[in-house]
Write a protein that binds this DNA or RNA. Structure first.
Lengths: 323, 323
DNA sequence: TTGTAAGCGTTATCAC
DNA sequence: GTGATAACGCTTACAA
């Protein structure tokens, strides 16, 4: 492993000069620059980022904290975040909190130890204060737990609203609402949006399910308890898939007897039959916005918007009636 | 951010002593040890891992290279790898190659710059030589491209064999084989295993599909072209799901008319109806073995086995007949 | 335009 | 047992 000294020696200059050409900072004669460059080439020299980080107190590492990795929505998001991170010339350290405070604590310490430059936080455990103690630039995705932390989230309220509007305008009067754990901000927002358009004559039955692996039997049971329902709003496409399956089993026609709306717009939603009508979250936009915001924060630029809401969209497919 | 000097000052000792208590190395009087410990406590001191890494030339970072993040099998695997990594007291840097050699090159350089301690490689692009130039401990998952790199892979041959045996023993005579891209080692192995038990009287039609987002229409067309087939071996559960859907559409009874076997055993396989009979890969075992091997490699221990094959298992569910 | 040298926060060697 | 101090590989004043 060649060091800057080796390069300096080979190019017959000082390390300072080598450093200057690497960082394109300060004056350096074109001749010597070329000399240094060829030396670098010949030695296959790559600057040691650890040494650099130590001096600059910034590691060029961004950490992302996720509640799990095996959820379809989060995988999609992670893929975007990883790509945007490397494009911004940063590296991504990944932390799967598993909603486990102990594991999160462990990582919190690591962020400090490595002079992590920024933290992208998607967390349900309420340790915001611990994060803030770190004094590391930080943004939240899908949550907005503190006034001091910039956030990026889908317009979950709108998502709930769009779903309700669609269902009601196409005639639904008895609706099942399968949502995620009710302590999640996203879930609360969607519920709020959903209820915002309900009128007295609409009956809604709400049930909390796990997002990751919802129990198919549970869904089936709820549906069987409401055989006369004519609409189901599911807060994930996976839940929608399972609901559709249960409906088919009892001979319900979709969307004629019962309409179904999912959430997320994962790839599977358009691959299966019937193709699921869903509220699309743009992981693309969320991820891009997240990294854009992160970079501004790291560079000390001012944010033009502190809490950014990303629009969601109703994608009409086969599980709802045409307007 | 308190440094070791601050601690030393506060405890009225030298930095050397502080270093000794932190690392529990060398002699240090119990009294002074306590003094130092309380100073650390009071200052909320955490050792700077960057400085440490610079000196020791090891970063305690493990990198994982994956071809994508949004595949169900890879997400499962990543979750295990992340957990095992942090449990081994290492941190995980994530690299999504997207089968893109340029992106991989970029990361290759980064691994060098950060003194990454180990690389867990899952890659289809053939850049093994570039990786080997790095002289960083490395293991491969799902591949076995070089004699010099330890590997961990499912017994894909066995997987193919088990599927064929099951299908044939339950009477299948005309089988469709939906596999992944044929240039993948895993796919080739499965195919080899599958064919190993075929006899003259069994007809097999093989088609290559994308693992990530196989085209449902494509699958449907192939099935329609072989309406008299009585068995389908799919090299992913997602493909199996789509095949089942197409079969249902044309009124085929599963497993009576057509039997279906998937691969991977993703969560969804047991959630949907009919529950998919599948060849289970143990991401748990693969991930654990991977990190175990990685740690031995990093610590310079000898490996008792160089190319480790993890057993797969036929999970019989609703899409195949009982023996 | 270039070189010298201090310093980033650690660890390890060697005196004491 | 403990404390100076050099070293890890780099950047950046400051001098020259």
């Amino acid at each position: 492993m060649a060091t800057i000294k080796d390069v300096a020696k080979k190019a017959h200059v000082s390390v300072a000069t080598v450093s200057r050409v690497i960082n394109q900072k300060g004056y350096v004669n074109e001749e010597t620059r070329k000399l240094v460059l060829t030396a670098i080439e010949e030695l296959n020299y790559v600057p040691n980022e650890l040494a650099r980080s130590l001096f600059q107190k910034r590691s060029h590492i961004v950490a992302v904290v996720m509640p799990h990795l095996t959820s379809y929505y989060f995988s999609d998001l992670l893929e975007v975040i990883e790509d945007e991170t490397i494009n911004a010339n940063y590296r991504l350290m990944i932390c799967n909190s598993m909603d486990n405070p102990e594991k999160e604590s462990k990582y919190l310490k690591i962020f400090e130890q490595y002079n992590v430059d920024g933290i992208i936080l998607i967390s349900n455990t309420n340790r915001i204060q611990d994060y803030q103690k770190l004094h590391i630039p930080m943004i939240e995705i899908d949550h907005n737990l503190s006034e001091e932390i910039p956030s990026i989230a889908s317009n979950n309220y709108l998502g709930g609203k769009l779903a309700a509007e669609k269902l009601i305008s196409t005639g639904c009067r008895k609706i099942l609402h399968f949502r995620g754990p009710s302590n999640l901000v996203t879930v609360a927002e969607r519920t709020r949006g959903f209820h915002s358009v309900l009128t007295k004559d609409i009956a809604v039955y709400t049930y909390d399910l796990a997002f990751i692996s919802p129990d198919p039997l549970d869904i089936e049971e709820k549906i069987n308890n409401h055989l006369d329902c004519d609409g189901i709003f599911c807060e994930s496409d996976i839940i929608a898939m399972l609901a559709i399956q249960s409906l088919k089993k009892i001979g319900k026609k979709i969307p004629d007897d019962v309409q179904v709306i999912g959430f997320d717009n994962i790839q599977l939603a358009s691959m299966i039959e019937p193709k699921i009508t869903t509220i699309a979250q743009s992981t693309e936009t969320i991820g891009k916005t997240a990294l854009n915001t992160m970079m501004r924060l790291i560079n000390g630029e001012i944010l033009e918007s502190f809490n950014q809401i990303i629009d969601v969209e109703l994608i009409e497919r086969d599980t709802t009636k045409k307007a």
